[in-house]
């Protein structure tokens, strides 16, 4: 049984921990709000862009000389998986669920005899995947998830790197892995295919409007050539935003339960501290009384 002093120290230390976790929870909550707002604010652009792309792609996709970003390279031998994780831990199962998903996907693809390459965004993902898949990691993009807010320039940077490798013929299919934000406590692990682009479905209303009658300036192909890389950046941007909202949500939930656990622990420790103090007092009383009787 621990001594009274030891118990007191334990209680103090758990109290300190609880202060930290509850502060982290509050910080995560306010960051979550901001991240959520940002994610929502960026949605209109992504929506409009998908709609525009849908209008364009419908006419071009089936042509034999469709852009490779849209039509693919005609093979799916080499896969590039872009893994977006957080830079920091202490956010529950956020990072590990991504890593677990990636591990499963990589193993499955390799079992099919495909080649897999990894591109990592975020420090935690690198830490966890480096040992196992060190030889297939082709690129690591640093210092994005740790920023206060996600910048469109960052997404553009990642998109440029992906495009560069695609143009060099390094892979055929590109998939992005991230946690989609559902609510503050639920995140959904999502695999999103970036290349070839899965053409968004054109909504019926727009189609009825006679979408095929668009005029193009300069030409359909030129616009697509500009639109597709831009779309890639937008998709990544959206995913990064979702990811950062998910991260804060996961951290908030994790810190909330940590705070609660610390409270429980303090309660239990205080109980056993008091019990022991009482036992000690009783013991001392007995000693005094029996001492007095002996005289």
């Amino acid at each position: 049984m621990a001594s009274l002093k030891e118990l007191r120290n334990r209680i103090d230390s758990v109290k300190q921990t609880r202060k930290i976790t509850s502060a982290m929870k509050l910080v995560a909550a306010s960051k979550l709000k901001r991240a959520q707002e940002q994610a929502e604010a960026s949605r209109p652009f992504a929506d409009r862009m998908s709609a525009m792309l849908a209008n364009l792609a419908a006419g071009v996709r089936d042509l034999p000389d469709a852009p490779r970003l849209l039509g693919g390279t005609g093979s799916d031998e080499t896969h590039l998986i872009v893994v977006a994780t957080a830079d920091r831990g202490l956010c529950g199962g956020f990072n590990s669920s991504i890593v677990r998903g990636v591990r499963r996907r990589v193993t499955a693809l390799q079992a099919e005899g495909k080649q897999v390459k990894l591109m990592l965004v975020g420090r935690k993902g690198r830490d966890m995947l480096r040992r196992e898949f060190g030889d297939i990691i082709v690129e690591y993009v640093d210092g994005i998830a740790g920023k206060r807010r996600v910048d469109f320039g960052d997404a553009q940077l990642i998109a440029d790197k992906i495009l560069e490798r695609f143009d060099a013929g390094e892979f055929d299919v590109c998939t992005l892995v991230f946690n989609k934000f559902k609510s503050a406590i639920t995140q959904v692990l999502t695999f999103k295919q970036l290349i070839p682009v899965e053409p968004p479905v054109r909504d019926e209303e727009a189609a009825a409007e006679g979408g095929a009658l668009y005029e193009f300036e300069p030409s359909e192909e030129r616009i697509l050539d500009e639109l597709l890389p831009r779309n890639l950046a937008i998709q990544i941007f959206g995913a990064l935003l979702e990811n950062s909202a998910s991260e804060q949500g996961a951290r908030m939930a994790a810190m909330d339960s940590a705070t609660r656990n610390a409270g429980d622990m303090i309660h239990r420790l205080t109980l056993s501290y008091n019990r022991q103090r009482q036992a000690q007092i009783t013991k001392e009383l007995i000693e005094i009384i029996s001492g007095a009787e002996a005289v």
Partner: peptide
Amino acid sequence: DFGVLPQHAPFLSL
């Protein structure tokens, strides 16, 4: 440069 007025024909441009 081009101007867009109400009832413009469907048009996509860079």
